[in-house]
Design a protein around this nucleic acid. Structure first.
Lengths: 234, 234
DNA sequence: CTGATCATTGTAATAATATTA
DNA sequence: ATAATATTATTACAATGATCA
C-alpha cells in the first residue's frame, strides 16, 4: 500500500545558475576508461574497450593500470546541470545519465554524493558569511540601543531631579534589568577564506559602550573567541 | 583524544547544526526497480587484515586485489598523536612512522595531508556553531534593549505630559524585567523556519518622541532570516 | 604541499518482498 | 488469507584513503 506517498519535503530549489566556471580539466586522455565495476549490467558501453577490463566480480578491479579518474568537462557539465535541478538523484536520472555520459551508474551516484558533500561545505561557508554579517549588524543595533537607553535614562533622571516634586527616585529606574554594557566583542572573522564576500570586518569597535554608572550585569564573555585549539576533529 | 577508535559503535548521527541541509528522509520510491536485482556483486567486504603487517596499496599487484583500507585504530592513534605534536610532517618522522606502523611513507604523507585539510573544514563548522550561539545571545539582548527603550520612552512621555503633577508609577518600571517573551527572531540553524512571531509591539515608539538626536536604531526586522539559497558551488 | 576529486567502507533508514505465526 | 516479522535492496551520508592538478 502506498508505495509512493512519501513525497520529499525540503526541495532546496537550486536556482542560481552560474555554472560557468567549474570547467577545469579539458579532456585529453579524457576518460578512456572507467572502472568497470560490474559487467553484468547492461550497457557498460563505456569507451572502455581497453583490454583488461574484464574484472572480477569483486567490486574493485584496479587491476588495470588505468585508474583514470577525472571526468571530462562535458560529463561534468551534464552532471552539474542535473545537480542544479535537483540535488537528489532518482534511479531514472541515474540511468539516464549513466547512458548519456557513458559512466557507470555507480559513478553517477558517487558523483552526486560527493557533490552534495561539497555543496554542504560551500553552504556552510556561505551561511557563516551571512550570519557574520547579520551578527555585525545586530551588534551595531544593539550598541545604538544601549546608547539610547543611556540617554533616555539620563533624561528621565534629569526630569525627575529637575522636578523634585516627583517621587520617582533614580534608583528605581536604574534598578531595571538591563543588558547594557554587554561586551560586544566582534569576533574578528578568522574564517580562512571566503571566495565571495569576506569583508574586512569591523573589528575595531570592540569597545563597549560602557553604560555610565549602571552596573554591568552579566559580563557575558561568551564571545571568547578561543583560538580553536588544534585537533579533536570529532 | 579518541576521535575515532576504529572500534567505535558508530557515532549516532553527527547532529551538527547543518542537518537541515539534508533530507534524511530518503524515499523517492526507494524500490522501483524491484525485481531483477542481480545478486552478483554481493559485497562480502570485510577487511580482515592483520594490523601492522599489511603491505602497500601500491598499484595492486596482479590479481592480488588488496582492498585494504581503513587503518587500524592503533595506527590511527600513532598518527593522531604525531599530528598533535606537529601538523607538518618532516621526512624523518615520516619514515619513522612508516616503519613503526607498517605503512608506506606515501600513506603517511597522504594521511597527514588529509588530516590537515579536513581539520580545516571542521574548524569552520565549529566557528559557525559558536558564532550562532553568540548571535542568539546578542539577539536576545537586543530585544531586551528594545523593550527597555520603549518603556523608558513611555516614562519620559508620561513625565512630560503629566506636567508638574503626574507621577510615574514605579510599577511601570519594575514590571520591565519580565521581558521573557524573547522569542527572538533568531536564525535557527535548522531549516529556515520563518519566525513571524512577535517583535511588532515596539513599532510605534519611534515617533512618540522626537527622535531627533536619538538614534532610531534602524529597522526592527533586519535580522529576519532569509531562506538560504543553493550555492551552486563552482 | 594544498585543493579538489573520485572512490570505498561502514552505518542507518526505509520500502518492497518474502516468510512465518 | 492476514497481520507481524525477517529479509533484501537501495539510498543517504560521514569518514576516509588515495589520486590528480
Amino acid at each position: 500500500m502506498d508505495w509512493n506517498t512519501n513525497l520529499r519535503a525540503f526541495v532546496p530549489r537550486p536556482e542560481s545558475s552560474f555554472n560557468f566556471l567549474y570547467n577545469h580539466n579539458y579532456d585529453q586522455f579524457a576518460g578512456m576508461k572507467v572502472n568497470v565495476v560490474h559487467p553484468g549490467m547492461a550497457e557498460m558501453s563505456q569507451y572502455g574497450l581497453v583490454p583488461g577490463v574484464l574484472d572480477k566480480n569483486s567490486i574493485n578491479n584496479y587491476g588495470n593500470q588505468e585508474k583514470k579518474k577525472r571526468l571530462t568537462s562535458e560529463q561534468l557539465e551534464s552532471l552539474e546541470s542535473c545537480f542544479q535541478e535537483e540535488t537528489k538523484l532518482d534511479p531514472d536520472r541515474k540511468m539516464k545519465l549513466s547512458r548519456e555520459l557513458g559512466l557507470q551508474p555507480r559513478q553517477i551516484a558517487v558523483w552526486f554524493q560527493n557533490r552534495r558533500a561539497r555543496w554542504k561545505a560551500k553552504q556552510l561557508e556561505q551561511l557563516y558569511d551571512t550570519l557574520k554579517q547579520e551578527f555585525d549588524v545586530i551588534s551595531r543595533e544593539k550598541q545604538k540601543l544601549q546608547q539610547e537607553v543611556v540617554k533616555l535614562k539620563a533624561i528621565v533622571r534629569e526630569q525627575v531631579q529637575g522636578g523634585n516634586r516627583k517621587q520617582v527616585s533614580t534608583t528605581d529606574i536604574s534598578g531595571e534589568e538591563t543588558v547594557e554594557s554587554t561586551s560586544v566583542a566582534i569576533r574578528s572573522s578568522s574564517k580562512p577564506r571566503s571566495s565571495t564576500s569576506n569583508q574586512q570586518n569591523i573589528a575595531e569597535y570592540n569597545y563597549i559602550f560602557n553604560a555610565d554608572d549602571y552596573s554591568p550585569v552579566t559580563p557575558w564573555n561568551s564571545t571568547t573567541v578561543q583560538p580553536v585549539q588544534l585537533p579533536s576533529y570529532p
